[in-house]
């Protein structure tokens, strides 16, 4: 064992920083989260072991269920809308006779580089009930005022729009680079065979993008479950916009209920691990067929 290490000390040394940092700032915190979640630690006094008390409390906590529901809404809406838009915009950008494609690519990527916090403040003003530009446009179209951020019915919409607006460009770029890797002769052959554009899209583009779409859906899922900035900067009434991750942060660092916050952290870890496993299995099955 030691001999192996000595013989290969250089590559091991090169990858060591990652593993040290992983150990220190990811593995220990994860394990520790599990432990803290079993205590009633409030941040000051010594933690006291209390079994599954925190989880029992979580189970009957309406705010927890609301946050969980909100996060699922953000996740599913993001997954559907972002993936659809990203594939659509990437296909448009990949159009053979496109003029000014560099400009289009640059401009459509811009939202992704803008900070969610800053854009959230702008969206707060755009979606203002009385003075916002959005309501003004709606009024001009003959639709009445919509109480965007002050009613529980509509308050999630600005968050979803901000999420979609900011994150679609990233996935557009990834999918676009995937489109470039599909050989053009596939399409030429299909055109000769008389397949229309829609048919070509379904039978050539989508299957060739399989791996990339899978990669995108996993990244999107992980990102959606840790959504924080968007809902933090665009709060609705009460807990109507709180994401699960935000609820964890608030219980841990606003109310200093560290044990409770850690229990939420554990739930998040379990959900993410579960989703990843399901996605991987689904992918395997798909590949076998």
């Amino acid at each position: 064992m030691l001999q192996i290490l000595r013989k290969n000390k250089i590559p091991y040394l090169f990858i060591l920083p990652f593993f040290l940092l992983f150990f220190m700032f990811q593995l220990i915190p994860t394990v520790w989260t599990f432990y803290i979640s079993l205590t009633n630690w409030k941040g000051i006094s010594a933690p006291e072991f209390c079994g599954f008390e925190n989880y029992k409390k979580l189970f009957i906590d309406n705010m927890f269920w609301a946050a969980l529901e909100n996060t699922v809404v953000y996740w599913i809406s993001g997954l559907i809308i972002i993936m659809f838009l990203a594939v659509a915009i990437a296909s448009l950008l990949n159009y053979g006779h496109l003029k000014g494609s560099t400009i289009f690519k640059t401009v459509t990527f811009l939202p992704n580089i803008c900070a969610a916090i800053a854009m959230g403040l702008i969206f707060r003003m755009l979606f203002d009930e009385n003075a916002g530009l959005i309501n003004e446009v709606l009024k001009a179209m003959g639709i009445g005022k919509v109480p965007w951020l002050t009613s529980t019915t509509f308050s999630k919409i600005p968050v979803i729009i901000l999420n979609v607006w900011r994150n679609t460009p990233w996935f557009t770029m990834i999918i676009f680079s995937g489109l470039l890797n599909i050989p053009r002769d596939y399409y030429e052959a299909a055109t000769v065979d008389g397949a229309n554009m829609w048919k070509q899209f379904c039978c050539i583009t989508l299957p060739s993008l399989g791996n990339i779409l899978f990669f995108c859906s996993i990244t999107l899922t992980v990102d959606s479950w840790k959504l924080f900035n968007e809902s933090y900067i665009l709060p609705g009434p009460g807990t109507s916009n709180t994401s699960l991750f935000q609820y964890m942060y608030e219980s841990g660092f606003n109310i200093f209920n560290m044990g409770y916050a850690s229990a939420i952290g554990v739930i998040l870890i379990l959900i993410l691990a579960g989703i990843s496993v399901v996605q991987l299995i689904a992918r395997r099955k798909q590949e076998k067929i």
Partner: peptide, 27 residues
């Protein structure tokens, strides 16, 4: 480089992406 456990360690690195470090914010 070729070294024992390379592929395993590489997949391990990738797998760490699935659980974001943010979940361990308290510790």
């Amino acid at each position: 480089y070729k070294f024992p456990g390379r592929d395993f360690l590489f997949y391990f690195v990738i797998a760490t992406m699935l659980v974001p470090p943010e979940t361990g914010a308290v510790p």
